[in-house]
Write a protein that binds this DNA or RNA. Structure first.
Lengths: 218, 218
DNA sequence: CGTTAACTTGAATTAAGTCAACTGTCGTGG
DNA sequence: CCACGACAGTTGACTTAATTCAAGTTAACG
């Protein structure tokens, strides 16, 4: 199920966009090939991806997960080096940021879409910063689960089910925790009765608002 | 020295913008008055501000500092509650986000400016997330100082001088550390010879690239 | 059904937090 | 201009949450 909205927003310029970026299929676990010298903008059409930042000493922080319809902005010259990796097989459209922004400048609806998505990403990143800076392990995991519910959760008779495409390691790298701590917090939430898990990826949120409270949301 | 660029970008619509937001003077330590029910966009014309997020339990995280020319996007309905506070006397222009975006939709240069600033803010937030998630106290402080050098630093014969408008508490709230840890790390960097301080706010960076290395930048 | 990697659990360690006492800076008023 | 008071910042001793290291379990895939 493809969902390359930029083509839609762009109206008559859809062809110019197609010339800049062919849709690409990225296999699970592979990086999206990007020119490391230029800022990139990537649209996720299907599947799921993670944006990884590397600091010195091989430390990695996942700064965002993406799902269909999301826009990913990848800077070339930050303090850290970024790369985009597929969590599941994914279809993406990768643009050189400069060229896309130039086209968008003469295509207000496209530019508006970019702006709206860019702000959504900013707000998500900020909410996440609060967790990284000020929350304990349990609150971070609860926050993560509540956030995922809003993005990929399926609700049924008041209970949310998640099918997580990322590993415990990915969750840890996203929350600034080790894999062991993530695992212990899953166990803790399970023991409290707030969640149930089955297999490695399915999570049932038994009480979303209690979980949001546990997450330290105001 | 006022610097309200949106007026400039907006060309002929400058008057519509003026009707939406009068420039305001915010005294040091005061909040920028915002409608808590609506997303806001604030331009900082002069002075310095901090964007504070509150989680439950009275915990506060400063998610960004702002200087003249910066755009601040403040969401009304996030997981956390946000407010913008002046670090020094500041002149700002506050807009309801919805209305400003609507005007921007028919004013490509304005929209382009918003988009560019929004991406800058996103990239800063991401680089900061890496620090919050994966760096130790010393790396966080070094990162902070290098970042501030790039924004408000004054360079002179290869040495950077900073006049920090924020307190140690603000720095701690921004780096996810306590005031005591921030203080200890200042002492540590002083002892290593990487920085000198005089008074509460002046910092001399004796070797920016060594500091960037210490910051864990790649 | 067996293999492998992902996940879980436990015990010891550590970086940063907390609590407490002290010192320096800066603005005010004598 | 200097002395004082108040608050910002510093330093030290102890505690704690999360990491690290190590040893099991379990799920998923062929």
């Amino acid at each position: 199920m493809r969902c390359f909205e930029p083509m839609v927003w762009a109206g008559g310029t859809a062809n110019r966009l197609r010339m800049m970026a062919q849709p690409m299929d990225i296999a699970r676990g592979r990086m999206v090939p990007l020119d490391p010298a230029r800022d990139a903008l990537v649209f996720v059409g299907s599947g799921a991806t993670k944006l990884i930042a590397s600091a010195s000493g091989g430390r990695e922080q996942i700064v965002a997960f993406h799902f269909p319809g999301d826009l990913v902005s990848i800077p070339a010259n930050g303090w850290h080096s970024y790369r985009l990796s597929a969590l599941t097989e994914a279809e993406v459209l990768a643009f050189p940021a400069g060229e896309l922004l130039e086209i968008a400048a003469s295509e207000p609806p496209l530019q508006a879409g970019l702006l709206r998505r860019s702000m959504t990403a900013l707000h998500r990143c900020r909410d996440k910063s609060v967790g990284l800076g000020r929350k304990n392990a349990q609150e971070r995991l609860a926050s993560f689960l509540v956030g995922m519910a809003g993005r990929i959760g399926i609700v049924e008779t008041g209970r949310w089910t998640l099918e997580l495409p990322m590993s415990r390691r990915d969750i840890g790298d996203s929350l600034g925790l080790t894999i062991e701590t993530v695992s212990r917090q899953f166990s803790e939430l399970r023991a409290t009765g707030l969640i149930e898990t089955s297999g490695r990826s399915r999570v049932l949120l038994r009480d979303l608002s209690a979980l949001a409270e546990r997450a330290g949301h105001v």
